[in-house]
Amino acid sequence: MGATKGQFNVTMLLERQFGANALGGFALGAEVGRTRVDTSLDGTIDRGGLSLGVYGAGYLAQNLILGGYAV
């Protein structure tokens, strides 16, 4: 009894530097997976998904960096 899980993820980053103190980019991702459940509730869960996000980071001061990511 229990569960068996298989999963595959891939992410590609496209990044660009803006001057000497900042960078930004896009993230593209995909995921597929399957979970087989063998308990009192028996079955299979299939899933798949795509993700797209943007991110950036830059120096605000000599020792202070601001970064962010949005999906």
Rank of each mutant, 00 (worst) to 15 (best):
A70E: 13
R34K: 14
Y55K: 08
L13H: 13
G33L: 08
M12E: 15
S40G: 10
G68E: 10
V10F: 01
A30M: 12
G58H: 03
Q17A: 10
L52A: 15
L60P: 07
G49W: 05
S40N: 13
L52M: 14
N63A: 06
T4P: 01
F18P: 00
M12V: 13
G43W: 03
R34A: 11
G68H: 11
G67C: 04
Q17S: 10
Q7A: 01
G56N: 09
G33S: 12
G58N: 02
M1P: 09
L64V: 10
G56A: 14
F18D: 05
G19P: 01
Y69R: 13
G68Q: 12
L28E: 13
G6F: 06
G43C: 04
A70F: 10
Q7I: 05
A20L: 00
N21F: 00
Y69E: 14
G53C: 07
I45P: 01
L41Y: 11
T11N: 15
Y55F: 15
K5H: 05
T35E: 12
G49I: 09
E15K: 12
G67E: 13
G6W: 07
D42W: 05
S40E: 14
R36Q: 12
G29F: 03
A70G: 11
G33K: 07
R16H: 10
D46I: 00
S40A: 10
L28D: 12
T4C: 00
A27T: 07
R16Y: 08
Y59H: 08
Q62L: 06
T39L: 08
D38G: 11
F8V: 11
A30L: 09
A57S: 15
A3S: 09
A30P: 04
T35I: 14
L50H: 08
T39W: 04
F18H: 04
L60T: 14
L23T: 00
L23E: 08
A20E: 06
A22D: 01
R16F: 03
